[in-house]
């Protein structure tokens, strides 16, 4: 039964039917409340639906501090919880975990809080280490230029 439900989840994710994903996930969690993949899917579905508070509550209830850090940071970012976000980022920098996702969140929150120098610096470093042929290179360049323009 769980295998079939996960197949449904996979199909619904590819169709971007996130409200329906949540329904299938809840059926899995009724059978197996601790299923880590199901809990992870539930967090991402909430985020895709813009329900950042629900995502954050689930992250805090069902995942330890070291898990799904990027997801937690992203929820803080979207909820404008900048103090919590900066604490989280500081913690992870101390642990030398410099994931790309966290560097992007750091650059975005710097821009959002008008710390344009910090934002420019992170995007400059990201540009230097990103392949120019990747789509993301142009996105980084756009954000770099936006932060640089805001500095002037």
């Amino acid at each position: 039964v769980i295998t079939q439900l996960f197949k449904d989840v996979e199909r619904l994710v590819s169709q971007e039917e996130y409200a329906k994903v949540l329904r299938s996930i809840d059926k899995i969690l009724q059978l197996n409340p601790e299923d880590n993949d199901a809990l992870h899917c539930k967090v991402i579905s909430y985020i895709r639906l813009g329900k950042y508070q629900n995502a954050l509550e689930l992250l805090q209830k069902s995942f330890s501090d070291e898990n799904l850090i990027s997801e937690k940071a992203y929820c803080f970012y979207r909820l404008n919880k900048f103090d919590e976000l900066l604490n989280l980022l500081r913690q992870y920098k101390l642990g030398n975990k410099n994931e790309l996702s966290l560097r992007h969140i750091e650059a975005q929150v710097a821009y959002k809080t008008e710390d344009y120098n910090a934002s420019v610096e992170i995007y400059y470093a990201l540009l230097k280490e990103t392949d120019k042929n990747l789509d993301v290179y142009n996105d980084i360049l756009t954000n770099f230029n936006a932060a640089k323009a805001a500095l002037l």
Binding site: I2, T3, F6, V9, E10, V13, D37, H40, C41, I44, I47, S70, E71, A73, Y74, Y77, L100, S101, H104, I105, Q108, Y111, V136, D139, I140, T142, N143, N145, A146, A149, A150
Partner: peptide, 21 residues
């Protein structure tokens, strides 16, 4: 205000193990 992308969103994704369940 200039264009600014939410690039971090792309790094938040469903677990890669999903297809093996």
């Amino acid at each position: 205000k200039p264009l600014f992308f939410d690039i971090a969103f792309n790094y938040v994704d469903f677990p890669p193990t999903l297809s093996q369940r």
